[in-house]
Amino acid sequence: MIKKISLLFLIAISLASCASKEKIVYFNGINSDQNLETAQSNFETKIKPDDALMIMVTAPDLRSAEPFNLPFAAVMGTTTGLTLDNVNVQPRYQTYLVDRNGKIEFPVLGTLSVGGFTKEQVITDLNKRLEKYINTPIVNVRIVNYKISVIGEVIRPNSYVIQSERISVPEALALAGDLTIYGERSDILLIRDLNGVKTHYSIDLTKSDFINSPYYYLQQNDVLYVKPNKTKINSSVVGPNTTVIISTISLLITAIAIILR
């Protein structure tokens, strides 16, 4: 009788610890010979309020471009120690902060609307405006505070500055070290600010059609929250020592079965 109870107990533990492949593996349903193209393969980041833009204007005649650039900001720094002898001044490019109406104040040209436009569109617009003053202007635009945040059940939850200004959800999760075994893969929360309104979406990494989702690529200041799965939630209720207790009971039942044999 003890042997039967022990066997049933061990079988129950084994079944409880089994997980479905479909709940763990990403992008289920993709064939090895299937080529997938995202619906947003030409995705480009659009400029939003509170973006910090570094805009540099150059030309073959460098002096003609000088009035259209912000002056350098002097940044004080020290090498070793805190004495005045070790203080050095380093120049740093100033940036344009996009206001809540999507506008910036540009030297000579005045107020410019950049909110909702891609970098390429801003560059094209600036080139046309600058052609009146500069021969062959060259414009470079960069968002210097482009960041995303990944929190919850990942290895390295943090905020990450993205240099390329384009990142997908899988790439963002890779930066955070991927999901832990306790991360809910079928219901990741994406929080996004759209025109001052916080919106949220659910992302299912276990479905292959997610690659064609409009949320495959992230926007600046997006937040990904990986929820804990049922195993993690249940373990928080019963306590962290549950596994040890179950293992101890299993060993005791096995020992009793051997003694009573």
Rank of each mutant, 00 (worst) to 15 (best):
T58S: 15
L194M: 15
P60R: 06
K4V: 13
I211S: 01
R166Y: 03
E105I: 05
N101Q: 14
G29D: 01
L36G: 05
Q121T: 07
K207Q: 06
P49N: 06
C18V: 08
N31M: 09
I203F: 03
I143F: 00
P49L: 03
I11F: 12
S64Q: 10
D99S: 09
S17E: 06
S41P: 04
Y160V: 04
I5A: 08
V197W: 07
S14V: 13
A255C: 03
L70T: 04
E153A: 10
R129M: 12
M76S: 14
L260Q: 15
G77W: 05
K232I: 12
V114E: 04
K207L: 06
D51T: 02
E44L: 06
I188N: 03
R100T: 15
T231L: 14
N221C: 03
R192Q: 10
I203T: 02
L82W: 13
S235P: 06
I47R: 00
V25S: 13
F68H: 11
I256W: 07
I155W: 08
M54N: 14
L109T: 09
K230R: 14
T206C: 07
Y215R: 11
L205P: 04
N88A: 08
T58W: 02
I30W: 00
V223Q: 03
I259K: 13
S20H: 10
P240L: 12
E22Q: 14
G177Y: 10
I148S: 03
Y182C: 07
T83M: 07
D193L: 08
K3T: 08
K119R: 12
L173E: 03
R129A: 12
L173W: 03
A52Q: 11
E165L: 01
P214T: 00
P157M: 07
I253P: 02
R129T: 04
I2P: 01
S164T: 12
D125T: 04
I134V: 09
K103R: 14
E22I: 09
R185T: 07
G116N: 06
S17A: 05
I104G: 04
Y93C: 04
R185Y: 02
I256M: 11
L130W: 08
E184K: 11
G81P: 01
Y201A: 13
I55R: 02
S159A: 09
Y225L: 12
